[in-house]
Design a protein around this nucleic acid. Sequence first.
DNA 1: TAAGATTGACTTTTCAATCTTT
DNA 2: AAAGATTGAAAAGTCAATCTTA
Lengths: 178, 178
Amino acid sequence: MSAMTVDERSTTNETFRWLNPAESRTWLVYLETTRRIAERMHRQLVADSAISAGEYDILARLSDAPERTLRMSELATRAVNSRSRLTHAVARMEADGLVLRTPCPADGRGVLCTLTDSGQARLAAAAPGHVTEVLQMMFNPLTPAEVDQFGDLMAKILQSLRHEDTHPEAPAVDHHDD
Amino acid sequence: MSAMTVDERSTTNETFRWLNPAESRTWLVYLETTRRIAERMHRQLVADSAISAGEYDILARLSDAPERTLRMSELATRAVNSRSRLTHAVARMEADGLVLRTPCPADGRGVLCTLTDSGQARLAAAAPGHVTEVLQMMFNPLTPAEVDQFGDLMAKILQSLRHEDTHPEAPAVDHHDD
DNA sequence: TAAGATTGACTTTTCAATCTTT
DNA sequence: AAAGATTGAAAAGTCAATCTTA
């Protein structure tokens, strides 16, 4: 994705600029690394436990929730995003007996999604292999100090992403030179 | 995806362990951050330029290649992965006039994929908006030193990933305590 | 009217053949 | 037989309604 290097800046308005070499290199490494990690994570889960990465995520969120239960909207926010994708995914998982849906007593519009014993068992069977893969992919190559550094940098980016999602149109750049 | 916390270690063999708190935190931040970045990148491209992130990637790889041309297998490796996904995607893009396929003269099995002028124009139109989004998402919140740090950490992980893909079954852990 | 969730149509991806050339 | 690429059917995801309750 390095057609940052297309030299066409005629559509520019305002203070547009391209990526500098350091940014470009970091961005390319970022793209390849994240793509590979997602791919390997998914493959390992499917091969060893017959669940997709998205399904694992859903099971994990439910497992951590009180009563192993979460409202669909909450689950969508925490796990996969997209309401309708979650509905489709949960419908498939319910057919497989991994989760269970019940009307929400407190709010007639809501639906509660609960992890079944079977779902919990599937998660428990999948978790060690998944964690081993995560360790091998991401943490074995890093020292403890680097693990923290990496987390800090990611957190800094994430904070900015969340901020921009909450306050759209707010550029969030520091303009100390105008 | 924090069902690293499932306390079931019976399926363990060898020297299995769970993530420690620092690793767990970094992993969760990593997952949310990368998911958000991929999502925003894709949305911005579709909204502003009517192309998907995957299509942008294909256009960009071709644009950087000599003669704006790459063999399908090479393009698959560099861009999207999966042979058949690339075939389907390129078929759609060819129908839209963005790329062109021709038999490979050197190897009768191969197929060359070439970026058309129309495809180049589409890429040029999309690139500034895309780069602006990348800057805003990833680089505005970081100092130049942090950009390098981040790139270095990612590169370290990537190197290990590539190594494991090349040498399967080689754990690549340092066992300085046995 | 808005929020929560679902539905169905359409698009994209995956997976397992298949076909051709080396 | 193996590599490069394609195909078509099945699975998953997206998007724009739709339905129900607050």
